[in-house]
Nucleic acid binder design. Structure first.
Length: 856
RNA sequence: GCCGGGGUGGCGAAAUUGGCAGACGCGCCAGACUUAGGAUCUGGUUCCGCAAGGAGUAGGGGUUCAAGUCCCCUCCCCGGCACCA
């Protein structure tokens, strides 16, 4: 006997055949408005996956989970008469691709091309209905030419606070346009990762380590390109409201942007300092101003140098040096114990003219607010801790509900103002308002909104990314002329990071030198640049004149309110990275009149991660990684797809199970044998199928209930229950022969989005035996509709409860009214038995469902 | 610490407005067909109990004729943020 197991149905023969057929016929190609073959009568549906970065590890079973979900939706919408845009491409610039190239000692251009090829082969083996004519790669010059073009748009724009939107820099009338550009150069301290040899954005640093590789990150001042995402803080928060996104993701973005409302307050320095300066602080609690008994500056704050007194200099210098040596990680880890030093200077509290000492302490961060605080120890736990340690006064100015002064220490909620002349006895919200009004009227401060979000550090000291279309001359930057795009990187053989902040592009002096007096910018853009707008390029991927044509953008991204991609599926890991950056770019382009919608992704769904069979996260070191290729070789692509969807709810984390794959594979084999049977020679021939036989009443009910359930479940992305319903369908037809042809055809159409190969094969076989059936290919069949009348049964089984406990069940006519059901129930033998000797207090009848008899 | 999302059989999970808890699948048990079965088909399978019956959706309380579902408290798991003034 041969040792290799017989396949339950010959998927290995027909799956590759249909895949080749779809590719050769461009079955899933979709046309743009104006192109021949475009059908304007159909509505559009844009369904998008987060495109993968083609790593060397290849596809794992997590990728196709979301991809299968969108594939089902795309095929389903297509059968429902939509023009479906369902593209795929490659996020091929950036750190992961470059790290892989360095590891294998090959040029990233080569490894990237190889990885893309193998990813594509893998995806095609799963039978996805992509329009491959729209394939894009962020590292191809045709693509990044427009990434660079968009960067120049940002460079040549500013955010006008009057109009609350981006405008061309030409509308700026101030002195220093370079200080307002959306893309600008900054010298601020940045996250430098020596191991990766590049700086990183805040969003790419997790617990003081790089998101890629987990290497230590340190702060150091460097000249870098920044994008002014903070200008969009309001809109990035406010416009989340209209999006159909998981609340959890919206919340992550809200928290990350971190909007707080309050006031900025100016404290003048005390007269003896001889300085006409103010310290401005941000506070969310202006009502506690009377309780401000000291101030704290961040150790790095610029004012420190000016205000510190002679005798405090040594202590201050010492403290600053210690702080500077700490990494961000240490600074937060050692946060338990408060530390700080008095500067020797005093400031004047504007509400009561009191002199308050000014300290420096590392619990105040330079990067948030103004880098200075007014400390209210009675109502802020950090200030309290600090005040107790350094014996600073603690003054209660807010009474907690039902508490006296002593009991209000440490209280930070809403209460009643006390010991605060201007606002005494006012409840907190009113006290805030009143005090801000007073500050504004007297020129001591103003209403203010502060964001945690910081500008986006946009340059990297790496090779494998988009070069900046920027030239330097006499220390001044200017844009590269648009006609010189794309700006391709020099073909370096040694592209490795230099180990210093000097970018590797500096290794190509001829490339760097632009003219006698001008040189090129040496930094490259981060990986996120390409993914910020790829969904736009899919709309018109070969356009050589624009990043996307107006018509294509209006068609695929427009329509509906607020429009955009109709369904976007991907992991949560991009919540505050890609999903925030892309919204930002999109809004800028929208403001500049390049786009028709303010938001890119109308509906977002996160697929849950797939764990290994052991319930642990899949990883090479655990040896629990499942490779799609292996599963497909053994069970076929349809079984693989179906299992991915049958595992459980799309958004949930769930473990892989090979026996589960076997289960859905058995189901598909039952579908196969519903239509075909094996003859003596081992060939699959038509089984007991009849065109004459009609489904019986019960079968009709299953057919129509299934059409309803499968349709609703696909719309709701509940694929697991849709599949369960199709299993019920198959079970209802296996026992009885001959099988009605029409029922089988309907089943194949319902199942087609999930298992496109087997349904296509069986559809063809039925066509051969029963010519003259429905016209066209199964992929183009109209989605079936159900007849509600056929769902209704003549009789229903109702439950008979006594005191809420089920005692019996009884079949009654559907039309039976309350009285009839009650009468029937009281006649019931079991009921009579149970209520003997008791009195019936109440009878609740829910027609079609149950009777509950309350008896005591 | 704060903010989210969860906790239902041996396992993955189902369960409109509160209305038969456990659909569907895995696994397991029994049987049929077979030279054979890791194929296929049929039946069973929440727990305790021979049974009648009882218990049961993390735990405790409440509302209700009726609670997985609504309200209050507690515990546990997962994710995020974390000196954000």
């Amino acid at each position: 006997m041969s040792s290799d197991r017989r396949k339950p149905y010959p998927f290995d023969l027909f799956e590759p055949r249909w895949q080749a057929y779809w590719a050769a016929n461009e079955t899933f190609r979709v046309r743009n408005p104006g192109e021949p073959g475009f059908d304007a009568s159909r509505p559009k549906y844009y369904v998008l996956d987060m495109f993968p970065y083609p790593s060397g590890a290849g596809l794992h079973v997590g990728h196709p989970e979301g991809y299968t979900a969108t594939d089902i939706i795309g095929r389903y919408k297509r059968m429902n008469g939509y023009n479906v845009l369902h593209p795929m491409g490659w996020d091929s610039f950036g750190l992961p691709a470059e790290q892989y190239a360095i590891k294998t000692g090959q040029h990233p251009e080569i490894t990237t091309a190889q990885n893309i090829a193998s990813f594509k082969t893998q995806l095609n083996k799963i039978g996805f209905a992509y329009d491959w004519s729209r394939e894009i790669a962020t590292s191809s010059p045709d693509y990044y030419r427009w990434t660079q073009w968009i960067f120049l748009k940002l460079y040549n724009a500013w955010f006008n606070p009057e109009s609350n939107r981006a405008e061309p820099i030409s509308t700026y009338t101030g002195e220093k346009p370079d200080s307002v550009r959306l893309a600008y150069v900054s010298e601020a301290p940045v996250n430098w990762c020596p191991e990766l040899g590049t700086v990183l954005a805040n969003e790419e640093v997790i617990d003081g380590k790089s998101e890629v590789g987990g290497f230590p990150v340190e702060r150091r001042p460097m000249r870098q390109w920044m994008l002014r995402i903070t200008a969009y803080g309001h809109r990035l928060i406010d416009e989340l409201d209209g999006l159909d996104w998981p609340e959890s993701i919206k919340l992550l973005q809200r928290n990350w942007i971190g909007r707080s409302e309050g006031a900025s307050v100016d404290f003048r320095l005390a007269p003896e300092t001889g300085l006409e300066r103010t310290i401005t602080v941000f506070t969310t609690r202006p009502d506690t101003l009377y309780g401000a008994t000291y101030m704290v500056l961040a150790p790095e704050h610029r004012l420190v140098d000016e205000i510190v007194t002679e005798e405090q200099w040594p202590a201050v210098r010492d403290y600053r040096e210690k702080t500077a040596r700490k990494s961000d990680l240490e600074r937060t880890e050692l946060s338990k114990e408060k530390s700080g030093v008095f500067t020797g200077a005093y400031a004047i509290n504007p509400v009561n003219g009191e002199r308050v000492p000014v300290w420096i302490a590392d619990y105040v961060l330079l990067g948030y607010g103004t880098g200075a605080i007014m400390a209210v120890p009675a109502h802020d736990s950090r200030d309290l801790e600090f005040a107790q340690k350094f014996d600073l006064p603690i003054r209660v100015v807010v009474l907690a509900p039902g508490q006296d002064e002593a009991g209000s220490i440490g209280f930070c909620g809403d209460g009643t103002a006390t010991g605060s002349a201007l606002i005494d006895a006012l409840p907190t919200p009113e006290a805030k308002r009143t005090l801000i009004d007073w500050l504004e009227a007297n020129g001591h401060g103003k209403r203010s909104i502060n964001f945690k979000l910081r500008d986006w550090l946009f340059s990297r000291q790496r090779y494998w990314g988009e070069p900046f279309p920027i030239l330097w001359e006499n220390g001044q930057h200017r844009p590269l002329p648009e006609g010189e795009l794309p700006l391709t990187p020099p073909p370096l053989s040694d592209f490795k990071p230099t180990g210093t902040p000097e970018p590797p592009l500096s290794k190509a002096p001829e490339w760097v030198r632009y003219s006698e007096s001008a040189t090129r910018e040496l930094n490259t853009m981060p990986q996120w640049a390409g993914s910020c707008w790829y969904y736009l390029r899919y709309c018109d991927p070969r356009n050589a004149n624009r990043f996307v044509s107006k018509e294509a953008e209006a068609y695929w991204m427009g329509g509906g309110k607020p429009g955009g991609v109709d369904l976007y599926v991907g992991g949560t890991e991009h919540a505050v990275l890609h999903l925030l950056y892309a919204r930002f770019w999109h809004k800028v382009l929208y403001d500049l009149g390049e786009l028709t919608t303010p938001e890119p992704f109308q509906r977002l769904v996160n697929q849950g991660i797939i764990l290994g069979e052991d319930g642990q996260k899949m990883s090479k070191s655990r040896g629990n990684v499942v490779n799609p290729d292996d599963v497909i070789a053994q069970y076929g692509a349809d079984a693989f797809r179906l299992y991915e969807m049958f595992m459980g709810p799309l958004e949930q984390m769930k473990p892989w199970s090979m026996t589960g794959v076997e289960g859905v594979s058995r189901f598909l084999a039952r579908v196969w044998r519903l239509v075909l049977e094996e003859n003596q020679a081992g060939e699959w021939v038509l089984g007991p199928v009849s065109a004459e036989v009609e489904p019986d009443k019960a079968q009709l009910r299953v057919i129509h209930a299934s059409i309803k359930k499968v349709s609703e479940d696909i719309e709701g992305l509940c694929f697991n229950t849709a599949i369960a319903q199709m299993m019920v369908y198959v079970n209802a037809f296996t026992a009885k022969t001959p099988r009605p042809l029409c029922a089988l055809r309907t089943l194949l159409v319902l199942l087609n989005p999930f298992a496109p190969h087997i349904t296509r094969e069986l559809w063809e076989r039925l066509d051969q035996h029963f010519p003259g059936g429905p016209q066209g290919e199964i992929e183009d069949q109209p989605w079936p509709s159900f007849d509600p009348a056929l769902l209704v049964e003549d009789e229903v089984e109702i439950v008979i409860q006594i005191n809420g406990k089920t005692r019996d069940k009884q079949v009654v006519p559907l039309q039976a009214d309350r009285a009839a059901i009650e009468a029937l129930a009281l006649e019931n033998e079991r009921v009579k038995e149970a209520i003997a000797g008791k009195s019936v207090k109440k009878v609740i009848v829910v027609p079609g469902k149950l009777v509950n008899i309350v008896a005591v």
